[in-house]
């Protein structure tokens, strides 16, 4: 047998499989990103609960299918964690935003994981917990979710703050005739508290970095730059709500 038969042909076959897997995972995560964004848009719309539910359930079918496939492929493609994280952050952005819009609270991480398991198992009843604050039923099936952890959650939360800012501003300037000062103020308080927690993290770990699900403390690393950028955007979101509140409560009022 030649060197081609003993080395290069099997190598080519193996490398092709790896490349095909990577491309397939990229396609799947693209869908997760896209449908998570659609879910967020639905949450922003001023539509009734019934309509919102039906829109989200349609998207859940696709998200469920893509997550199921990723879960299987991830077992043999652990090195592709970095390719998956972005889409997972988007998914977290949707879940935390939907829950916040409904309850005004931070979605507990463990409940998020339960909902992801439900999503994979096509048990979409969790939607009642997410958008109506009903009880979340525990899942019987013990399925492992290896490709999500708290580091993704932290990064996804950053993105959620941008959505809360958008919600606050659109709420405050809606056409109902009344400014929703109280709601905006509550959102502002929530973001302030969350921002404070992030600032504490940066003070404790000045080079805090999150990359491929790993926490590190190295200034100028890719993960650290991304963390700092998100923190800057977060700060500007807080400032935007602050300015809106000032406008609503002081500047735009003729009589105080």
């Amino acid at each position: 047998m030649s060197s081609d038969d003993l080395i290069f042909i099997p190598a080519r076959d193996e490398l092709r499989i790896k490349q095909d897997d990577r491309e397939e995972i990229i396609r799947l995560v693209r869908d997760i990103t896209s449908y998570s964004k659609k879910c967020i848009f639905s949450c922003h719309r001023s539509i009734g609960l019934k309509k919102l539910k039906s829109e989200l359930l349609e998207y859940f079918k696709i998200l469920s299918d893509r997550l199921k496939k990723i879960r299987i492929m991830y077992i043999t493609n652990l090195h592709l964690r970095g390719n998956i994280s972005g889409a997972i952050e988007e998914l977290i952005e949707f879940f935390t935003f939907a829950y916040f819009k409904n309850t005004g609270k931070l979605l507990p991480y463990n409940d998020f994981i339960i909902m992801i398991k439900c999503l994979i198992l096509e048990k979409f009843e969790f939607i009642d917990y997410l958008i109506e604050d009903k009880e979340l039923e525990k899942v019987d099936d013990e399925i492992e979710i290896d490709f999500i952890d708290t580091s993704d959650y932290l990064m996804g939360l950053f993105d959620c703050t941008g959505e809360i800012m958008r919600l606050s501003i659109s709420q405050s300037t809606n056409t109902s005739g009344n400014f929703k000062a109280k709601e905006t103020w509550e959102n502002y308080k929530f973001l302030q508290k969350l921002y404070e927690q992030f600032i504490i993290l940066v003070q404790l770990y000045p080079g805090i970095s999150i990359y491929k699900g790993i926490y590190d403390n190295s200034i100028n690393s890719k993960g650290s730059i991304s963390f700092k950028k998100k923190l800057e955007v977060f700060e500007s979101s807080v400032k935007k709500i602050e300015a809106t509140l000032i406008d609503m409560l002081v500047s735009d009022k003729e009589i105080i």
Binding site: L106, P108, Y109, D149, T150, S151, L154, K193, L194, Q197, I200, L201, L204, Y205, I208, I214, Y215, D216, N217
Partner: peptide, 20 residues
Amino acid sequence: MDQFFKEIKNQIETDFEKKS
């Protein structure tokens, strides 16, 4: 929220230890 961030801090410390 405080509990969640406490957990995050623990995980950061664990990851640092493993890195070392």
